[in-house]
């Protein structure tokens, strides 16, 4: 039962309400003291592992010294940012990070939607379950295993892909050691791993479409394709837009571990990306402030992209995150 409405209902006169409410609140807090005890470790967790690091962002403007800590390390202003912007790797890293995400938006993003629409047309339950189950499996493999699978199937001597290429008369390709192949392999394996699982959210949206719409369309003689274009796609558009906003808001986001595992000296030209650089300079080489500055720059770009994508989507399609 909603206690607020109860209060309003019994409170009657307006003048009495605030004091009455405050007492009521205190009583509620006292009565539910054990709920607050439950929340205590939770709030401690958010404070220590989420808000203290946010507070620690200021080391991006300081020269972090482990002995002096977040607060007492000397202030250096924009120095780390300037160093990053003038680094020869700056433009290369920005281009790589953004381009991988752009490829993902073009090639990886639409596939789960198309897959969900297609699977949704299947009426044979067993076949449908089989297809869905097999496409979910790769999602549960670890990144290490996925990268191992990539190197197995692309192995220049015995990998299946190169055997096929040779069968059709081509030259074997060293996919993991050629810069030009890094991004296609990265995005392609991402599709393999996540297409099925990402389609779940769209399958959920498809399940929510009122079947009456399809029945009416059938009565009017609409073909399957017409139904898909006139009913299915418009109905899941809000979900698609939300996912697209989130994806654009992460235009500079990349999982660190997969690039880290796929990167080597031979493909560094196109695998040099910001998150991995942050890890290497910060965690490995101990250049904490410089790495934190790069990470902050990255986060701010992401946040701005999220805001603008959200605004544009709100104007164009009416769907937005908030």
């Amino acid at each position: 039962m909603d206690t607020k409405s109860q209060i309003v209902g019994t409170g009657g006169q307006k003048g009495l309400l605030p004091r009455f409410r405050r007492n009521r609140k205190l009583k509620l807090i006292a009565k539910n003291y054990d709920l607050y005890l439950m929340l205590l470790p939770v709030l401690l967790f958010y404070l220590i592992f989420r808000y203290v690091p946010m507070y620690g962002i200021q080391i991006a403007f300081r020269d972090y010294n482990p002995g002096l800590g977040f607060l007492k390390s000397p202030w250096v202003g924009w120095e780390h940012f300037e160093r990053f912007f003038s680094s020869f790797r700056f433009s290369r890293m920005i281009v790589n990070t953004v381009m991988i995400n752009v490829y993902q938006i073009i090639f990886q993003f639409p596939l789960p939607i198309i897959f969900a629409i297609i699977v949704n047309e299947v009426r044979r339950k067993r076949f449908k379950a089989f297809v869905l189950n097999t496409t979910y499996i790769p999602h549960f493999l670890s990144t290490v295993v996925v990268v191992a699978l990539i190197s197995t199937v692309t192995n220049p001597e015995y990998g299946v892909i190169n055997q096929l290429i040779e069968y059709f008369g081509g030259e074997p390709i060293r996919f993991l050691e050629e810069s030009s192949w890094f991004k296609p392999v990265y995005v392609g394996s991402g599709i393999w791993q996540n297409m099925g699982w990402s389609s779940l959210i769209y399958l959920g949206a498809l399940a929510g479409i009122d079947p009456v719409l399809y029945e009416a369309a059938q009565v009017d003689g609409a073909s399957k394709l017409q139904q898909i274009f006139r009913i299915t796609i418009p109905c899941i558009m809000p979900t698609v837009m939300i996912m697209l906003i989130l994806k654009i808001g992460g235009i500079m986001d990349l999982g660190v571990d997969k690039v880290l595992l796929m990167q080597n000296d031979l493909n560094i030209y196109s695998s040099d990306v910001i998150p991995v650089y942050v890890y290497r300079t910060g965690v490995r080489e101990g250049d904490f402030s410089y790495a934190a500055a790069i990470d902050l720059f990255n986060n701010i770009i992401n946040f701005l992209m999220l805001l603008s994508a959200n605004r544009i989507s709100k104007k164009l399609s009416g769907s937005s995150l908030w």
Partner: peptide, 25 residues
Amino acid sequence: LMMIITFTMFFSGGMIPSFLVVRNL
């Protein structure tokens, strides 16, 4: 409380400050 919690989904301190917190603990 929910606001405090959901805010962390959209913004975070990033890898380095989080790493330093764990190390300093």
